[in-house]
Design a protein around this nucleic acid. Sequence first.
DNA 1: TCTTTTATGTCAGTGTTGTTGACTTTCCAA
DNA 2: TTGGAAAGTCAACAACACTGACATAAAAGA
Lengths: 169, 169
Amino acid sequence: MQDRTPSGAGDMLLYLTDEQLRQGIEAMFFAYRGFTADPDRLLARRGLGRAHHRAIHFIQRSPGTTVGNLLATLGVTKQSLNRVLRRLINDELVATRTGNTDRRQRLLYLSEEGLALERALSEAQKRRMRAAYRAAGPEAVAGFRLVLDQMMDPAQRRLFRALSRGGGA
Amino acid sequence: MQDRTPSGAGDMLLYLTDEQLRQGIEAMFFAYRGFTADPDRLLARRGLGRAHHRAIHFIQRSPGTTVGNLLATLGVTKQSLNRVLRRLINDELVATRTGNTDRRQRLLYLSEEGLALERALSEAQKRRMRAAYRAAGPEAVAGFRLVLDQMMDPAQRRLFRALSRGGGA
DNA sequence: TCTTTTATGTCAGTGTTGTTGACTTTCCAA
DNA sequence: TTGGAAAGTCAACAACACTGACATAAAAGA
């Protein structure tokens, strides 16, 4: 139980031992901290947080997206998102336009300043991702992506794939 | 810029494309949500949060560890950790003993109930990790671990490796 | 047209988790 | 014996999530 899965004593599935799984869990924890460290520093200077980063990221990803769309992507309540968006609009990082076909909708865009911030944030994050990818090599990257994909909830995986395909506005 | 790294137009490094990097970033975001979803549900029933989970996890990992040790591992302030520990001790999930050589230290242990909760939490998390690992296969897992390792800050990587080697009390 | 549903916004209250700053107690070690 | 490290605590604050209730505008359907 300390060292092996209960399933079998002598199997070949070393990568499925309890110890391996526990290490995977801890690796995710420490890696995610590294993953968010650089953007967090940049955001802190402006008094913004991770929630703002996420909103900015997905608006850049899908310019003209709606509030409801963003709500589904981020998986938070509208009250929570609204607080974040209000701040971003107030700081003139995000601009809104009324929907063309449906005038209830607010279509979300990044301003010039918002785009600049998004670039700074994603550059920092991509720099680290690139370094990690380069050090680990293409096959490791393929494996990394495979495992991450399997770790998502099915609903999130659909969302992720839709974004990857379309850029999905 | 939409599709390729600026570095070269015709290189073979498809996995270092801006689009690939951006997808990696989003995959991390969605996967981490999946990664924490099951424990979050269990914790919510008791009115506990992720911070309590992290403390419980690392106390289980290194029984008899000190507060200062935990502080360094978790990377939060002592005020923040203290609030979390106070709750866990009050709920009798964590017990403390005075240090043997240094009587200022509080050595941290999980109670029976704490151990039971830890098992429930890690079982849920390992179940998902195991499913992901199994679906992705051993080579993907090796790659996954390689990339995660590269994504950590150097200081965190040292911490992680010390934990992986020793169980490190 | 009238009604219902949808998209969005907003107010109030609450809770977790993090922060800084200030201060105290305990106690090891020089 | 004194300096400093380990730990605890109080207060204040902020980010970010939640629930619940209510408001408004516009689309959609009867």
